[in-house]
């Protein structure tokens, strides 16, 4: 087991290396570097002289050869130094410390919500296949799979403002500082974020359950007189969950992507708003760091999921 984890962690290195190359290469294609954007005056016109542009580029290290820039970025990042924002001059690691908790919390809350609601919906749907309830639940999940999260969010905000005089708060509290305020602030965005993940989990669980319910061992369990409840929970569910786990891992990526969009609607000062602002202003150091952090989060989630397989399915061993 420990060996397996170690091997997986080692395998992450080449992946991250290629990933960093792709990201770096891509970002340097950006038209108009940050130096130009920093010297744009309020009217949006480029008034700075060539010389001052060059001076700024030199100060930011943008005039060095690309491979030197790449190597110094990788070297710094590995040592835990994420650099400073080219635009604000603030340390990226300080910014991340404030923003990461909000995004991780948002993602985890919607992951928990979507799993705790989506999986039971799928199971009920499969057990009562082709009943009215099944059709209703399937329609429900198809609906939320097609509705874009940002639009649902807009509708919720509109409806809240129209009928309840509710507006999403500005300014967010951290969980460990003001737990109640934090949960009530992040609750709605987390629910909306989890909707489409919930829908697709319900669909995968349903089809996986249906497959398992046709297996011989289910018939055996039934014919030896086990109560239906025991058959479903002890025999069917455990096996049906294995493919669903993969989906939960993949969903985490979609949730992260969705959180970037939802954060900007609700004005949550998390990683998403950080990334979008940095992209708009070509703030390379910030974009690079956020992207690497996202990739690390995504990869480690999938590692955890793979380890859970072994726990759910004793046939898989990672000796």
């Amino acid at each position: 087991m420990r060996k397996y984890i170690a091997r997986r962690l080692v395998l992450m290195v080449p992946t991250l290396f290629i990933f960093s190359l792709l990201v770096f290469g891509l970002l340097r294609v950006l038209p108009g570097d940050v130096a130009e954007k920093m010297l744009i005056d309020d009217s949006g016109a480029q008034t700075a002289s060539k010389a001052s542009l060059e001076r700024l580029r030199e100060k930011l290290g943008l005039n060095r050869p690309l491979y030197v820039q790449y190597l110094s970025w990788v070297g710094d990042t590995v040592r835990g130094d994420f650099g400073v924002s080219l635009l604000t001059g603030r340390s990226v690691i300080q910014d991340l410390k404030q923003r990461l908790p909000l995004t991780v919390q948002l993602a985890l809350m919607s992951l928990i919500f979507s799993t705790c609601v989506g999986v039971p919906i799928g199971i009920i749907s499969a057990v009562k296949q082709n009943s009215l309830l099944d059709y209703g639940l399937r329609f429900f999940s198809i609906f939320f799979l097609a509705a874009p999260g940002f639009w649902v969010a807009l509708m919720v905000i509109l409806a809240g403002a129209f009928w309840f005089g509710w507006v999403p708060t500005l300014g967010y509290n951290l969980l460990w500082q003001q737990p109640m305020a934090n949960l009530s602030q992040l609750g709605v965005p987390a629910l909306i974020l989890g909707l489409s993940a919930m829908a697709s989990k319900a669909r995968y669980t349903r089809s996986s359950m249906l497959e398992v319910l046709r297996e011989d061992y289910i018939r055996t369990a039934r014919s030896k007189g086990l109560r239906e409840q025991v058959v479903i929970v002890r025999h069917a569910m455990k096996n049906a969950m294995i493919p669903v786990l993969t989906v939960i891992g993949l969903q985490f990526g979609a949730i992260m992507g969705g959180s970037v969009i939802l954060e900007s609607i609700f004005g949550i000062p998390g990683m998403g708003t950080y990334l979008i602002t940095a992209i708009r202003r070509s703030d390379y150091t910030v974009v690079q760091s956020v992207v690497v952090v996202f990739a690390l989060m995504f990869m480690s989630t999938n590692l955890v999921i793979d380890l859970l397989y072994g726990w759910l399915d004793p046939r898989i061993s990672y000796a």
Binding site: L16, F19, L26, G253, M256, G257, I279, F294
Partner: peptide
């Protein structure tokens, strides 16, 4: 490496580039 990143964010980064 490409799959280590959510697809929508990949699209976002590329379009910004």
């Amino acid at each position: 490496a490409m799959q280590a990143f959510p697809a929508i964010l990949t699209a976002l980064i590329i379009v910004s580039a």
